[in-house]
Design a protein around this nucleic acid. Structure first.
Length: 1212
RNA sequence: GCCGGGGUGGCGGAAUUGGUAGACGCGACGGACUUAAAAUCCGUUGAACUUAUACUUCGUGAGGGUUCGAGUCCCUCCCUCGGCACCA
């Protein structure tokens, strides 16, 4: 045996696979399809990262296994090659990006091939190839030429848009343009003032320019946008139909950020600042409402806001506009402090996103003096402010501020002394335990006071300990008629605690609600509760009456213990008020100070107010999303040109399909311009064109598409990569889509994944693809960290180079290591010493072949019994099986009675027969299938050959011929089954030879002999036919079966004793590896394979069949070494074309198990027992155990727990 | 702040969903082979106690609870990683 040399074998097999094209996927296959996909790599100059390998290899393993499972697998690869890194590298090295890309792809291809993934290279695609991006541009034009039909909830061609007919040409165009799914908009983008270039969000690192480090600014520029927001709802909803990792779904849902609420219209009125009725600058809650009688109802003077809490409308005490809001410009002349406003606007405009969204910073804003808004629900005049905490890009760019119930508004109002009005109070409800409301009891409404009584000297408080109910509270009591809060509290304190002299300090919070079942009164309570604080003046005390104190006891609790002591939510709330730990109340509750909404719970209040708004035409139910439209322009060279021509007369004109692809001009200067325009803008020859509509002079759009464009549909192109007339044929799309498994990084969850789902839905709407969702399943790999546990990066210098480790340890070692390093989805640090361990494992597998080979050569001629006396048949088999001693029944000394057949099918009977003879004689036995025609004629399937027809068989044959004449259904198939039974491992094999057969007629002049009449089976229904010898040979089913048999016998030999144990482990391993690959748990699949390898290694001999199964199981993980070993076994076809092993459930069951005996849950002994041990036996054995005796002696056995197949637990 | 994933030996990580915690691998230690080293092979390897591979106790971020039995379930808290972040 040669030494294992990965260098020698890996290249050899990679070339061989390439040459034999074994991974090329046919569109025409009849097998079920399986489309698995990794995100196609971006070919950068840095080359592949070991992180790429992790996902490529993982999905490769799935692909290989699925192929062996009989699927027609497509596992394609391509290049996502447009984009900045290449452009930057090109500028730096003064090389054309095309050339940079070509070189990078070459390098990537070499690298990828070096670890042997089973990619189908015949489908390779490249986003920068004009043949490819032609279709990217085509899809863009489809978007440009479509609108979203809200009623049908789908995109439709723009020609079908209903355009109001009272518009002039210009307005009409404007109308249409505003409905296109691809449209233009003035947008603030990130701008680097030093590089003078627009930056993509990805290029802004912590607010700074990625290249030069300068602070990025905002610059407003015209941008192409895609209306992904139209799909927001569907992008959430359809997640219900796909199998993505839960965290991916959540992240997408959060990113899209759907919120439901209402829009509310606020009229705006003019009001000179000095005329203002009154400004309330106090912060305590003021419920007085100043209303305006002059609220105009004119839509021109309306500000719309979006809110998720319309129920708090009565609490809206001011309004805030984003600094960019259009109202400001409209009221320019009416705003008294306009210069101040402008100053503020300018300040925010110059702020970067980072500064503006810095949460730590204090709220800022300016009031618009001279105008007021009217709260439509109560006609209150409220101030209007602008502040940068309101974003122009979300909702309507304006908010109704409810400082009492929104933290941001609260903070703002406090800072600027704006009125705060509380309109929602908490409501407490018990959901568990015995305080839950009971429907069978009456409900009593009460006003309650909760009083805390501070000690006269120390920092402690008088509380009640309700012994029977595990309640801890302050002094609690009802407010009786004619009493006020203070009076009621003082009376209760006296009655319940006996203390007499106290002084009022302050009220605590407002009136919250509390609902519960009051056990001590046996009734439901709905109480309106308010807290109050007193301080005792002295210790004057009088014993309270028994009646008052029977349920509870007054106790003094130190202030710091109060948090732990108080058990009820309402008590804690009041205590927090006492400690001043109050925040604004953001949760749901019950409305107060809200007119017709009073006493409604939030959920009902929302419904009520929304209905009211709709009725009065002051607002309506509305949904808003955080998701923004997709900024689709890049001011760069290396991207797909946007195929639009801008004509002054005709506006934006799309290129016609026949002019696609619109290629990039091949020029030398592709560096960014000073103006922030795309470098293409400088290329006059390319830019200046004739308008395709009017023929006048026009200009090309010079922006290019973002990197995300090409990757938004590439998986569709794989299905038909060379199609010249369509992006992919309908047939191929139908055949391959949707993708069964799509793997990619978590970093693409909110961009690529969302974008591509959007494009796919769009194409679906227009009928170009057949499914609403492109990916059936989405999984994600974890990062490979550097050895020090940090992210690998060039600057840290901790990058592991795949070329290096593959060169040193081999592709198989690296593959195995990357899969074994830890759970597939987790980030795991790289560790080269562990990788060496994998190499060791491969060496051990390599060495195992010796044990297998020795087996083969030492194989003695084995005896096989053919359970027949038919000499013709014996002769035939002897002829084929020269390496065996063949015996017939005549050669057996012992007289054996033919068994009664009881099986239902021919296979069953055949098995029973073989088994019977095998057990009687101890020989491996082939069942005799001749003579079965007699049985067959009784309605059972079988095979008959005239060559062997003698005696009774002949009679049967004649009978058969007679039946043939009357048979109506003559379509059938031939079937031949040979059963071999091996008594040594109690195992059998059946070899089927099957071929389809048409009705075959009895040839002219046939006397029935000299031809093969064949008994044919069709789903156990009888039908018969005859065929000529010639035809018989054509369908030589028998030969097929015999060939299989011979193949089996060649590899089948006497088994060592360890065999059964290995077989047991082998089948357990088959099960585990099969299931683990399906659920991407590669690490545990490998671990189980190692257990099997350890066992095989320890045994003296390894059976060839076991070894083969072992190799096949590992072949997806380590394709090179297994292929090499497979070849040495003189197999003709590649290991990767074998079928996946199946496990036998019977072989997995243990006959004997180790049962654990516990005493009080602690393991005290372990005994070996039969797996099927009965409960009584197990318990008996357990208590007899010596070790256990020690623990239970002299103790009373309370009970014994028995878990089948696991343990016995004795409780003493 | 919100959402999501985690916390298990010296390290990467297992544990059939409530049933022997630490599989498998790495590392370390001891031994065999060798003139020697590497490689390979054999053994040991959670901690404590111990002459002991015996016995026992402790042990899955912390504290409490449910259970015959908890890494797994419930409550409170701490730490950590990832995503979002003034989204009204």
């Amino acid at each position: 045996m040669e030494k294992y040399n990965h260098k020698k074998i890996e290249k050899k097999w990679q070339d061989s696979w390439d040459e034999s094209e074994i991974y090329h996927t046919k569109n025409s296959s009849k097998k079920p399809k399986y489309y698995c996909l990794i995100e196609f790599p971006y070919p950068s100059g840095a080359g592949l990262h070991v992180g790429h390998l992790r996902s490529h290899i993982a999905i490769d393993i799935v692909a290989r296994k699925k192929r062996m499972n009989g699927f027609n697998v497509m596992y394609p690869i391509g290049w996502d090659a447009f984009g900045l890194p290449t452009e930057n590298f090109a500028i730096k090295t003064k090389t054309h990006p095309k050339i940079v890309t070509k070189n990078n792809i070459k390098n990537y291809t070499r690298q990828i091939k070096s670890y042997g993934p089973s990619f189908d290279w015949s489908r390779e695609i490249n986003t920068t190839d004009p043949e490819y991006f032609k279709w990217t541009q085509w899809i863009f034009l489809k978007l440009f030429n479509s609108f979203y039909d809200e009623k049908l909830d789908k995109a439709r061609p723009i020609e079908e848009l209903n355009v109001p007919n009272n518009l002039d040409e210009f307005e009409k165009r404007k109308y249409i343009d505003s409905h296109r799914l691809a449209y233009e908009k003035e947008m603030a983008i990130n701008w680097c003032p030093s590089c003078k270039i627009g930056l993509a969000n990805e290029e802004v690192i912590n607010g700074n320019c990625e290249r030069c480090g300068a602070l990025a600014e905002r610059k407003v520029m015209r941008q192409w946008m895609l209306k992904i927001t139209k799909y927001a709802d569907r992008l959430i909803k359809d997640l219900g139909d796909v199998d993505y990792l839960e965290k991916i779904k959540t992240q997408q849902i959060n990113w899209i950020g759907k919120s439901e609420g209402a829009t509310v219209k606020f009229p705006v009125i003019l009001r000179r600042h000095d005329e203002e009725s009154r400004t309330n600058t106090q912060n305590d809650f003021n419920n007085e409402i100043v209303t305006s009688q002059k609220a105009p109802r004119n839509d021109n003077n309306i500000v719309k806001v979006f809110t998720t809490r319309p129920d708090t409308l009565f609490g809206c005490t001011y309004m805030v506009l984003s600094p960019e809001h259009s109202l400001i410009e409209k009221y320019k002349n009416k705003i008294e402090n306009f210069s101040e406003i402008e100053k503020y606007q300018k300040k925010t405009r110059n702020k970067s996103d980072l500064e503006r969204t810095d949460l730590a910073k204090e709220k800022s804003g300016v009031e618009l003096k001279g105008i007021k808004a009217i709260n439509p629900v109560n006609q209150e005049e409220i101030p209007i402010w602008i502040a940068d905490y309101v974003l122009s890009s979300y909702g309507t760019g304006a908010i109704m501020a409810v400082p009492a119930h929104d933290e941001r508004d609260f903070e703002f109002a406090k800072k600027f002394g704006i009125k705060i009005r509380e309109v929602v109070v908490p409501i407490f409800k018990a959901f568990t335990g015995n305080n839950v409301l009971r429907s069978d009891k009456k409900t009593v409404h009460r006003k309650i006071v909760i009083a805390f009584l501070k000690h006269w000297k120390e920092d402690k408080y008088l509380c009640l300990d309700w012994k029977k109910f595990d309640w801890h509270s302050g002094v609690v009591g009802g407010i009786e008629n004619g009493e006020n809060l203070k009076e009621a509290a003082m009376r209760e304190i006296k009655e319940e605690t006996g203390y007499k002299n106290m002084k009022f300090v302050r009220n605590l919070g407002s009136e919250h609600r509390n609902t519960f079942f009051a056990r001590h009164k046996d009734e439901n309570r709905y109480s309106i509760e308010r807290g109050i604080l007193f301080e005792l003046k002295d210790d004057a005390w009088e014993k309270p009456s028994e009646e008052e104190t029977k349920n509870h006891e007054a106790v003094w609790i130190e202030a710091e213990r109060m948090d732990d002591f108080l058990t009820l939510g309402n008590q804690k709330l009041i205590w927090n008020h006492l400690k001043g730990k109050t925040a604004c109340f953001k949760e749901d509750g019950v409305n107060i100070n809200s007119g017709f909404l009073n006493e409604l719970e939030t959920i009902d209040a929302k419904k009520e107010i929304t209905a009211w708004l709709e009725k009065n035409k002051l607002g309506k139910k509305a949904v808003n999303f955080k998701l923004r439209d997709w900024v689709f322009s890049r001011q760069h060279y290396w991207g797909e040109p946007i195929p639009i021509i801008k004509c002054e007369k005709c506006g934006n004109v799309s290129l016609s399909e026949k002019d696609l692809p619109l290629e990039l001009p091949n020029v030398k200067n592709y560096e960014p311009t000073d103006t922030g325009e795309s470098p293409l803008a400088n290329i006059k020859k390319w830019v200046e064109v004739k308008c395709p509509v009017c023929g006048g002079s026009a200009k090309r759009e010079t922006d290019t598409m973002p990197n995300w464009a090409g990757s938004s549909w590439y998986f569709l192109r794989y299905t038909d990569p060379n199609n010249k007339s369509e992006f992919a044929s309908k047939n191929n799309l139908e055949k391959w889509m949707p993708i069964d498994l799509y793997n990619g990084g978590m970093e693409h969850t909110t961009l690529h994944l969302l974008y591509s789902r959007f494009w796919h839905k769009f194409l679906f709407d227009l009928g170009y693809v057949q499914s609403a969702e492109p990916y059936k399943m989405r999984r994600s790999h974890g990062m490979v960290l550097s050895e020090d546990g940090q992210k690998m990066s060039k600057s840290r210098g901790n990058v592991v180079n795949p070329d290096e480790v593959i060169g040193k340890y081999g592709a198989d070692s690296v593959r195995l290591y990357e899969m074994f390093m830890g759970p597939y989805g987790d980030a795991i640090p790289w560790n080269t010493t562990s990788l060496i361990g994998m190499n060791r494992f491969l060496e051990r597998i390599w060495k195992m072949q010796d044990k297998v080979k020795m087996q083969q050569t030492s194989l003695e001629k084995e005896t096989i019994l053919v359970a027949t006396n038919n000499q013709g048949k014996l002769k035939e088999l002897k002829n084929h099986l020269k390496n065996f001693n063949i015996l017939s029944l005549k050669d057996i000394d012992k007289k054996i009675e033919e068994p009664e057949e009881t099986g239902k099918t021919f296979e069953d009977n055949s098995l029973l027969k073989a088994k019977y003879y095998a057990q009687e004689t101890g020989y491996m036995t082939i069942a005799d299938d001749s003579g079965l025609c007699v049985n067959a004629l009784n309605g059972r399937p079988g095979i008959f050959s005239s060559r062997y027809a003698e005696g009774d068989d002949k009679k049967g044959y004649i009978k058969l011929l007679k039946e043939l004449e009357n048979a109506s259904d003559r379509s059938a198939y031939f079937k031949s089954v040979i059963t071999i039974y091996n008594p040594k491992d109690n195992n059998y094999n059946q070899f089927n030879g099957k071929c389809d057969g048409k009705i075959l007629t009895k040839p002219e002049g046939d006397n029935g002999f000299g031809y093969d009449p064949v008994f044919m089976v069709n789903n156990l229904k009888k039908s018969f036919g005859l065929c000529s010898l010639e035809e018989k040979n054509k369908f030589d089913h028998r030969k097929k079966a015999i060939d299989k048999l011979i193949k089996y016998l060649k590899t089948c030999h006497p088994e060592p004793v360890e065999r059964s144990k290995i077989k047991h482990t082998l089948h357990k391993t088959i099960k585990k590896v099969t299931e683990d690959i399906d659920s991407l748990k590669f690490n545990t699949a490998i671990s189980q394979s190692m257990i099997l390898a350890n066992e095989m290694e320890k045994s003296k001999n390894i059976s060839l069949t076991d070894y083969k199964s072992f190799l096949v199981l590992l072949s997806p993980f380590i394709p090179h070494i297994t292929e090499e070993l497979w070849e040495t076994l003189e197999e003709e076809k590649s290991i990767h074309l074998q079928s996946w092993p199946k496990f036998d459930p019977k072989l997995i069951i243990d006959s004997e198990i180790t049962m654990v005996i516990q005493v009080n849950g602690k393991v005290r002994d372990q005994i070996k027992v039969p797996a099927e041990i009965s409960e009584d036996d197990a318990k008996k054995l357990a208590s007899e155990s010596e070790k256990v005796q020690k623990w239970i002696k002299g103790k009373e056995i309370r009970k014994i727990i028995f878990i089948k197949g696991k343990l016995v637990n004795i409780v003493v």
